[in-house]
């Protein structure tokens, strides 16, 4: 491929500089090592969706303003659209596809979302669930006000919000 500007290929002192063309990358996603060849500018979200065919993480805005792309990196919920895929090398990425058990048994939060009808179109749902599970682990489920605030990074245009809270409560209470 063509590269514009000789400075791009120079290595910074002491740093291994990669790109700007496609470079081999190994990502650990949902417990499996995945190899891909991508330009360094590729976001984690596009790497997952376009290169690894993991389309559970959704692109709602590509600007960090909707939460539909929420995944976990090293167990913490983050936005895949504002994360470079290369920066995730050596880290563990978990997407909605990695949440259910190996035999396909749904995570309790997934079951609760179905039981509480906590979605309609389903587009924000993977992000909501990744946030909801993280929220529970973070301990931010004491009451509805806390759940509301700590789930507010995930927009739902169908406005299933009361039902999303019900699902989080159900998992919290083991009901």
């Amino acid at each position: 491929m063509s590269v514009r500007g000789p400075s791009l290929t120079e290595r910074g002192p002491g740093l291994e500089e990669r790109g700007p063309g496609p470079v081999p990358v190994t990502l650990s996603v949902n417990g499996a090592e995945r190899e891909l060849e991508i330009e360094p500018r590729v976001s984690l979200l596009d790497a997952l969706r376009e290169h690894l065919d993991l389309t559970g993480p959704k692109k709602g805005c590509d600007q960090g303003a909707c939460g539909a792309c929420t995944v976990w990196v090293d167990g913490r919920r983050v936005l895949a659209c504002l994360t470079l895929a290369l920066s995730c090398e050596g880290r563990e990425v978990t997407t909605i596809e990695g949440l259910a058990g190996p035999d396909g048994e749904l995570h309790p939060m997934q079951r609760a979302f179905i039981a509480q009808d906590a979605f309609q179109c389903g587009y924000c749902t993977p992000g909501q669930i990744m946030s909801a599970v993280a929220l529970t682990a973070e301990g931010h489920t004491r009451d509805d006000d806390e759940i509301k605030e700590w789930m507010s990074g995930n927009l739902c245009r169908c406005a299933a919000y009361p039902h999303i809270r019900a699902a989080v409560r159900a998992v919290r209470d083991g009901t």
Binding site: L99, F113, F119
Partner: peptide, 10 residues
């Protein structure tokens, strides 16, 4: 379609 939507397979 709940399962498809909560697992990301939709």
């Amino acid at each position: 379609d709940g399962r498809a939507k909560v697992t990301g397979s939709a």
